[in-house]
Amino acid sequence: MKLSFRVNSKIEVLDVEPLTPLIEVLRDRLALIGAHQGCTGDNCGACTVLVNDVPVYACQVPVCQVDDAEVRTVEGLTADAERLAPLQEALAKAGATGCGFCTPGMLMIGLALRQRQPRPGPEELRELLSGNLCRCTGYEAIVQAMLEVME
C-alpha cells in the first residue's frame, strides 16, 4: 500500500504493509530511532510520538492510520542540534534523563501537554504522564523540568 504522510514537516511516500506498526516504519524505513520499543504492549510509552498533535503509542498505531497525517517525533523537536528545544533543554539541565530510554517519549507527551490550554498544573501533569514509564528517576525531576517550561 502506498502511503503519504508528513514526518517532522517532511513529506514521506512509502510503499508499506498497511498494518505495520508506525514505530517500525519510523525506525526501520525512515531511520528515526528516537522513539523506542520498550514493551510493544500499550504499556511503557517509550514509543510516544504525535500524530496531528495528539500523543499516540507508535507501537499500537498501524501505519495506514497516519495516511495524510502529520507525525512528529523527537527528531523534529529542534532543527538545529546545537540549539535544543525548551523541553529538551529543561530535561537535560535538570538531569532528568537517567538511562534515557523513556526520554524521547516523555518529551513528546510533554510537548503535547505544553500545547494544551490551559496547561496542566503539577498534580494533573503527574496524572497525564502516567502513560509513560520511567524506571530511573521517580519522575520528580521530569515533572519539575516540564513545569518550569510550562510556566
Binding site: R27, A31, L32, I33, G34, A35, H36, Q37, T73, V74, E75, L77, T78, A81, L84, Q88, E89, L91, A92, K93, A94, G95, T97, G100, F101, T103, P104, L107
Partner: peptide, 25 residues
C-alpha cells in the same frame, strides 16, 4: 545547586540520538 552540571550524555538522550543496541545500523 540544582542542575549544576547536566549529565554528559543528556544531550544525545534528549535529541533521540543515544545509540541503544536496536538503534545501530
Amino acid at each position: 545547586e540544582r542542575g549544576v552540571t547536566p549529565p554528559i550524555d543528556a544531550r544525545d538522550k534528549v535529541l533521540g540520538k543515544a545509540a541503544y543496541v536496536d538503534d545501530v545500523a
